[in-house]
């Protein structure tokens, strides 16, 4: 199944870094996200779209994970030539990821 069936998300920017907050639709699925949506997997998912590393932070209180995608925005802000210069829809790009229900 795809992540879009397990989570919702919002993203934004800080300079050349995009952040993605990934939130479990049902609290019981949060551990599944923690296990499967690792920083390494997210980096592979966005291969070719980011030039830097991926960091992950856990927010069990919100059933959420926060990802920082460095080098995601072609310089970011006003410098960027991208349509999504502020990383607003990296969120739904992540939700395309395939997840194993286990």
């Amino acid at each position: 199944m795809r992540l879009v069936d397990l989570a919702h998300a919002r993203s934004g920017d800080k300079g050349d870094t995009a952040n993605i907050g990934l939130i479990a639709l049902r609290p019981r699925d949060y551990p599944l996200l923690v296990r499967q949506v690792t920083a390494a997997r997210v980096a592979r998912h966005f291969k070719g779209m980011i030039t830097g590393t991926v960091e992950r932070f856990e927010l069990p209180n919100l059933n959420a994970l926060n990802f920082l995608l460095h080098g995601a925005l072609d310089g970011g802000g006003t410098i960027s030539l991208k349509t999504d210069a502020q990383g607003k829809v990296f969120s739904t790009a992540l939700l395309r990821m395939e997840i194993e229900r286990r």
Partner: peptide
């Protein structure tokens, strides 16, 4: 859900 989405918006190290 609506509040959580805003909490994680533009978040760095939580």
């Amino acid at each position: 859900a609506s509040v959580t989405e805003q909490l994680v918006y533009e978040m760095g190290d939580p």
